[in-house]
Design a protein around this nucleic acid. Structure first.
Lengths: 339, 339
DNA sequence: GCGCATTACGACACCGGTGTCAAAGCTGTT
DNA sequence: AACAGCTTTGACACCGGTGTCGTAATGCGC
């Protein structure tokens, strides 16, 4: 009788069931060439003993482990966390586990750190969040090391299948459609920082949408920030100080949009009565700010799930999807312009 | 010559260095009973071959693995993420990795899910964040399963050493001191939800501080919410509707404090000129809201580091600390009362 | 009843490390 | 020179699984 205080091993199961450990192994791995009778018997013993295979031992024997890594450079806490939850939706009840690794984009050793991390942990694969997902050296590193990877992004980054993306461009278009439908014609943008693919996509989507509606974009209607709150204030102040200020501002993310709220309030401009503002990402601040902000929400959790499946079970239907539709969330920061 | 395309193993190192694999193992584990000469020789070969020990194999052989788990029920995304970064500060360059596991507090299977997770992954130990860190059944489960654990909390939860906590009580006191110093005497509280230890601690700290200053707490000056934004609005409205409304409100967290901002603005009450509001946690919303909110910040990253060390290296000085001082962050939501 | 596939299972080596214990090497003492 | 006692090293089993391949058991046609 195996010691109850110790976790049962495959040997215990084999002994109690009166079969070889290889047979137990076959049961665990759902091998098709087993007699139903044997399978049932072994499964009974497994249940009785409460046996769970040791992932370390399996990992060692099979030459691949069951750890999937999440590499990110904290674009936004809520996004990262939602992503983690989405990955968990995919790996729940499997032997996979999610290992997180925040990295420092500004560190000169970032790539070496990641290489060392990959070497030590020998991950099954990694999921990479923007903005570092846009780093091609990192993707190359993964390939070199034979580590599976999926990049999250807002646009085509790869010519391979290692990608899950949202349709930021089209979504910005729907934002502009919404503003135009509300009667706006002088619409300004606060762009995100150079070097961020998402910023570029959103800016290009903006330009395309304006063109579609036959609207001009004067140079002074183009502001730029670094995705942070305070940069949104500065950019919005500049936009509002022009001779012919915009009636609506599209900010490339919610933080900067919140900054625009701030700038407006500071000079007594009411949002949305005198100025409409739209953000992007649907981060918590969008719902919390006053008035609640109209923004764009992308299905991060679904995207995470798909990315995880792409890695661990590429045949799963959920892994097939690569581009996910973001959608406009209409709240109260848009109204018809007065003038 | 080992195949360059394959990762070198301990056997490769042993062969090249002309020693037994056990000797290589001793080098890896810094065994003291090695001749310096041998050590140097083997280290040379390790560096030359770029050898990294396989954690799965070590885990199997040593009967313990190098995975530390993070159990949380998303109290606040920024907090969770900062905690992750703090843990990483501790485990960087070790073979440990951080495995995350968001759990659903409301699920009736939560404990079973966690049990299953622990059984499958056989973690070295887990770190538990509030509010589920306050669940004694969970702590008991960890003990039963022989899994190391450290609970984060705002008060004594355990009679053992499995704890890292902040001094919420004293900090609430400093909040009240600050308000009193600004001339407030009618101070109300919005309590957190029943069953949260942090809520209880903060409420008790409030009562103690008020008593210290000889101030009364009329029943109508006690509001309560569930830590969420909207509950803060409702609670603040109630407080402001009383005959003798408070000149200052202490909310037990920032989300509810933001709700109080909202309620005030909605009825044309200026913060801080007509109403002072203080929050707790220093979450991003505190800095983003207008005016920027005075709140209490606790050193989550340091706490995480300490918690991780308690688990993986209890002798490390960083593991000795159990209680961490939170501190008042003065911004612009407090002013002297008018009346 | 026999030969022959085919199916079902087991023996054994192996994954890459660590633990145990004995042996070899070295030093100093008598 | 012989021996004790310490330091340093290696042989070998073992951790808990999986892969390979051989063989016993089974089904089938004749």
């Amino acid at each position: 009788m195996p010691d109850a205080s110790q976790k049962p091993t495959i040997n215990d199961v084999a002994r109690v069931a009166g079969v070889s450990k290889k047979t137990v192994s076959r049961v665990i791995n759902r091998s098709p060439l087993l007699k139903q009778e044997t399978r049932t018997k072994v499964e009974g013993v497994i249940a009785e003993l409460g046996y769970r295979p040791n992932p370390q031992a399996r990992a060692l024997a099979m030459g691949r482990n069951f750890l999937i890594g999440l590499l990110h450079d904290n674009p936004n806490a809520q996004t990262v966390l939602n992503f983690q939850v989405g990955v968990l939706d995919a790996i729940r009840d499997t032997e996979f586990a999610l290992v997180v690794r925040p990295v420092d984009r500004r560190s000169p050793h970032m790539l070496d750190d990641i290489r060392s991390f990959l070497e030590i942990q020998r991950l099954f694969g990694v999921l990479i969040l923007p903005p570092i997902s846009e780093n091609d050296d990192l993707a190359r590193l993964c390939r070199e090391m034979g580590c599976g990877y999926v990049r999250m992004g807002s646009a085509r980054l790869d010519d391979d299948e290692h990608l899950v993306q949202s349709n930021d461009r089209e979504c910005v278009e729907s934002v502009i459609d919404h503003l135009v439908a509300n009667g706006h014609r002088r619409i300004a943008i606060i762009k995100g920082p150079d070097g961020f693919r998402s910023a570029q996509e959103r800016a290009e989507g903006f330009a395309a949408a304006m063109r579609k509606h036959g609207l001009e974009i004067p140079p002074e209607a183009i502001g730029s920030g670094n995705y942070r709150f305070d940069s949104g204030i500065v950019a919005a102040e500049k936009l509002l100080d022009t001779d012919n200020p915009p009636t609506a501002i599209f900010a490339s993310n919610d933080e900067m949009a919140a900054g625009a709220f701030h700038a407006a309030l500071a000079r007594g401009i009411d949002v949305p009565a005198q100025l409409s503002v739209v953000g992007f990402d649907d981060s918590p601040i969008a719902a919390h700010i006053l008035p609640p902000m109209t923004t764009v929400s992308w299905p991060i959790r679904e995207m995470a799930k798909s990315a995880a499946f792409k890695l661990i079970e590429p045949t799963n239907p959920a892994a097939a999807l690569s581009t996910f539709p973001a959608r406009l969330v209409v709240r109260n920061s848009v109204a018809a312009p007065r003038d």
